[in-house]
Design a protein around this nucleic acid. Sequence first.
DNA 1: GTCTATACGCAGATAGAC
DNA 2: GTCTATCTGCGTATAGAC
Lengths: 201, 201
Amino acid sequence: MLDSAEQKIKEAARKILLVKGFDGSRMQEIADEAGVNKAMLNYYFRSKKALFQMVFMEEFGKLFENMITVLLDDCPWEDKIKAFVNTELNHLLQAPQLPLFIINEMSKNPHLMEEKLKSISVGNVFEMAKTKYEKEIQDGKLRNLPFIQFLMNLQSLCIFPILAKPVLMQISKVSDMEYHNLINQRKALVSELLISYMIIK
Amino acid sequence: MLDSAEQKIKEAARKILLVKGFDGSRMQEIADEAGVNKAMLNYYFRSKKALFQMVFMEEFGKLFENMITVLLDDCPWEDKIKAFVNTELNHLLQAPQLPLFIINEMSKNPHLMEEKLKSISVGNVFEMAKTKYEKEIQDGKLRNLPFIQFLMNLQSLCIFPILAKPVLMQISKVSDMEYHNLINQRKALVSELLISYMIIK
DNA sequence: GTCTATACGCAGATAGAC
DNA sequence: GTCTATCTGCGTATAGAC
């Protein structure tokens, strides 16, 4: 049943909550978006909080799926960086509200997600990627930079320009289309920047 | 009157709103924090929205003051990058909620700040810095990268690790102290990364 | 200027008919 | 499963005494 009431509510909730956050969203608005009665939300999901947690878990999982797949792939790091940047920026151009949503809710309730993070083994994946990375350093192929700093650089350069879109557009007076072009430009620029710094020829 | 009722309310509002945002903050909570009666907030600031706008304007101004000062300084770009990164990271370590607050509220209401942005001439400063930057490129001292991309790189590498602290701490299992050390490490790392990419020797 | 009391509306949740 | 009606509590804002 892809268009069952429950499914329609889930999709509506995702749409509204992602943009407005927990505090800013109204159950009535979600019901309207789903085209169902307000009471149905409580019938299927018990409470606003429960509905929210379900949405959060799903979205959080999606964001890290891409990252995980690429980081654990067995190609040269130069290709890995390119693939990561491309995949991530494409994903974020499709769902630009995602990072702000996640950072917001993790800031307000850092412990909410521990369970979910364990269930998708984020910790393990992190360690595995780290091991691979450190092996390359020992082989003299990568610059000797702590893995966590590398990851911060990589994620910063991809995610922040998406996050800061409204601020950027105000300051630099670029249009929506120009902004989109800038982000597409970044795919090559960010890869180039990171590769030139990280890879030892 | 540094501890007048009005001043106490302003400080309390700043403290609460910065952490909880507009939707998540309660007038009662701000009144309690200020140690005054709830009705006083409306007496001095008319409404919650007006109180919020005042706080937002002030904080937004503060964040860009540092940036502006450094970018318009007349030193070599190598020193400028170092100074920018140091100043910004020090500022953000003192007020880590600031970027999330600003990005959140600009995302929800992008037009709210246009007036303030004009009053502090952000557009002019941006153009002046851009002109200086492009002069250096023509003189063959800087890599030929669009100014806006350079600025995105710079701000991404400084701000994102502060924004993503809760996510980072969950994934990599670092402690609060280790996190603080990582950010301090970044002052040198980010400068080095940007300088090695941007500056033509 | 400062307080108490209250108006008013809204949002989340549930009871109960169908 | 789905709806209407309603309970309940909370949050902003204001009226009005002092």
